[in-house]
């Protein structure tokens, strides 16, 4: 049964793609929009944070790293719950009027939850990559006249494979995430429905073919994004 559902799913996935099904295209578009923005912000926070933790020694660093490691393993659904409470009408952010505050059941709320889920992963893997760069290299770069920012950039470039892996890990945690986006997004058709929440819904409805089709599309898109990131790395992976 399972194999036949998968094969049917594959057929249906191809047919949905070839037919350019508008509902599917909207789900895929929103999936990429939410994940793309969340990945952008988690990289914006995670890469500098990871670089800082990897390069600097300060009092309380171990505590910060422990918190970061905890964040890396934090259940996404719990983060969804926290964001839900934060943004609900009685929550600290929900009480504030302002266009810049994300509202529940909007893509912005989903982006916020996904950013919180993925930035510790990006920061943690970046930190490990930076710590893997020969420590004396920094001093040699400084001796050539680099500023602290130029030194940090040079070290990040040296650790680029690890940094790309950190982004891929962050992307993986976002694109496959379902609990948090379901909680804060609500899986509203045409507004907050993304591939993962659509798969859950179709499975619950018993539409295994469509659920499998969406799953195959999600896998295919995820593979394409990761392959693109690998290509962006050029030959570094082969050296």
């Amino acid at each position: 049964m399972a194999i036949s559902a998968l094969l049917d799913g594959l057929r249906q996935a191809l047919s949905l793609i070839l037919e350019r099904d508008p509902a599917l295209l909207e789900i895929v578009r929103l999936t990429f929009e939410v994940s793309g923005v969340a990945l952008f912000f988690s990289s914006l926070i995670g890469i500098p944070l990871g670089a800082f933790l990897g390069m600097r020694r300060f009092r309380g660093r171990r505590l910060v790293i422990s918190a970061l490691y905890t964040g890396m393993g934090f259940p996404p659904v719990v983060i969804g719950l926290l964001v839900y409470m934060l943004l609900s009408r009685t929550g600290p952010l929900g009480q504030i009027d302002g266009d810049h505050i994300p509202r529940l059941f909007t893509p912005a709320a989903m982006m916020l939850a996904q950013t919180i889920i993925s930035f510790p992963l990006v920061a943690g893997f970046t930190m490990a990559a930076v710590m893997g760069v020969e420590p004396h290299l920094r001093q040699q770069i400084q001796a050539l006249g680099a500023t602290p920012m130029q030194t940090a950039w040079a070290v990040l470039v040296e650790a680029r494979i690890g940094v790309i892996v950190s982004i891929i890990a962050g992307f993986g945690s976002i694109i496959s995430e379902v609990g948090a986006v379901m909680l804060v997004g609500g899986n509203i058709v045409g507004r907050t429905r993304v591939l993962t929440t659509a798969i859950v819904l179709e499975t619950r409805k018993g539409n295994f073919d469509l659920a499998s089709a969406l799953g195959i599309i999600l896998l295919g898109l995820s593979f394409m994004v990761n392959a693109t990131m690998m290509l962006m790395q050029g030959k570094s992976f082969d050296q």
Partner: peptide, 24 residues
């Protein structure tokens, strides 16, 4: 500037390594 006992080069070409300080 300093030439160190154990020189560490950037993972780039030789000419890019020599040009690095000049580019800074």
């Amino acid at each position: 500037t300093t030439v160190f006992q154990r020189p560490l080069l950037l993972n780039r070409s030789v000419q890019a390594n020599v040009a690095y300080g000049l580019r800074l």
